[in-house]
């Protein structure tokens, strides 16, 4: 098994390539999820503030 990881002596080139790919692929999935979540919470906060201002102006 260990000679598999040695990659015929090229381990130091092959594995970083696959690790880098993994990082890039994960990052591009996480980024849009966080972007959407941040936008939704931002809108929610603005809505709450708008409603609070409305209630105060009525009382």
């Amino acid at each position: 098994m260990s000679e598999f990881f040695a990659m015929g002596g090229y381990a130091v080139y092959v594995w970083p390539s696959f690790i880098l790919a993994f990082i890039v692929l994960v990052a591009n999935v996480v980024a849009p999820l966080r972007q959407r979540k941040r936008a939704l919470t931002d809108i929610a906060r603005k809505l709450r503030r708008a409603r609070k201002v409305q209630n105060e102006s009525h009382t």
């Binding site: 999935v29 980024a31 849009p32 999820l33 959407r36 936008a39 809108i43 929610a44 809505l47």
Partner: peptide, 22 residues
């Protein structure tokens, strides 16, 4: 996924986004 995030940001003032947020 990216397009959905962009849509929420762009359509933040539309009613359907605000209903969804609520």
């Amino acid at each position: 996924m990216r397009a959905r995030a962009e849509i929420v940001e762009r359509e933040r003032n539309s009613r359907w986004v605000q209903e969804m947020v609520e």
